[in-house]
Design a protein around this nucleic acid. Structure first.
Lengths: 171, 171
DNA sequence: TGCCAACCGGGGCGTGCGTTCCGTATCGTC
DNA sequence: GACGATACGGAACGCACGCCCCGGTTGGCA
């Protein structure tokens, strides 16, 4: 790969990181190109599609998050809640977190699997209501993450969800 | 107004009700026109804009919902939770409920005011954590309502939120 | 029944966006 | 320093959608 090509690739990635984080997936690709100081064609030389660029930007972050879910622990409930907290923290600063779940089905599947493990163990420990599924949690979190950028208080939202998970099923 | 004009107006309203409920605000206006058996021009003869048509379809339902929030009660917490339940029930069947909050700022304002009243009274009764604001609730409900159509169990989601609201603030 | 106003259909315009194409500039090698 | 491959930029395409316009049609009143 030529030197300037590598440089441009980085400029595109930097611009994409910044704009996806600020505005989410809906930011026009042309804006990213302008911010990077290149033409739209150049973006497509390095990434076959807008989705691919988005994944290149978010994949590593989300993968790290998911990896942190698989560390063994002796307090399953605390592990689950800590994970939700990390997701919320990440989403509070970067708007692309919630879009990542929507755009990439791979990512969503991985997240689902990670949450499933955490959730099941927390439920076996009796710390989380038994009628919640991993799907419920993914969806609930996605709703929460989106809500964070519309004026709500993120920590209050998270506490509500965590408390709600701990309460027992209504008759 | 001519007889056929009135008939077409009703056909458009029926089609809009059905398609907005099924697919939300994003449904193309042309689809509504096709479903109604008329041309797009006819839709615009009766409603100046797509938003206007959407409001014509949703306004009454949401207004009724909001009105139900203002009935006096002696159990403020139950009133609040019942209201949230009604919102959830409505959204479970009709996808346009959550869009209504987004599209019409009037509707959003009214909903905010209604929730503010319910919430404040429930908090004064000590039944709901004091650090939640009406904005938090509107946004959280919007996220939840959107999420309901993605495979989660609506009643579990609602129970989690309700339980979370009742729990006290973490130190 | 004839006439005019009201109304209808659908083709068309403007816009925004993802994506592609190609003439031109630039890099790296011989 | 010249040459070929590589990469660049941005104009252009296709598509989807909200919205408007106009030639033809229809309804209801005289």
């Amino acid at each position: 790969m030529r030197a300037d090509a590598a440089r441009n690739r980085e400029k595109v990635l930097d611009a994409a990181r910044e704009l996806f984080a600020a505005q989410g997936y809906e930011v026009p690709l042309d804006e990213i190109a302008v911010r990077a100081g290149v033409g739209p064609g150049t973006v497509y030389r390095h990434f076959p599609t807008k989705q691919a660029l988005f994944q290149a930007v978010t994949e590593a972050r989300v993968a790290a998050l998911i990896a942190s879910a698989n560390e063994p622990t002796d307090d399953p409930a605390a592990a689950l809640f800590a994970f939700l907290g990390r997701m919320a923290d990440e989403a509070e600063v970067k708007r692309d977190m919630s879009d990542a779940i929507t755009v990439s089905s791979d990512l969503r599947k991985n997240l689902h699997a990670a949450l499933d493990g955490l959730l099941t163990r927390a439920q076996e420990a009796g710390a989380v209501r038994a009628d919640v599924t991993a799907t419920d949690l993914v969806v609930l979190m996605k709703g929460m993450l989106q809500s964070m950028h519309e004026g709500a208080n993120p920590s209050v939202l998270l506490q509500i969800v965590v408390s709600g998970l701990q309460s027992s099923r209504k008759p």
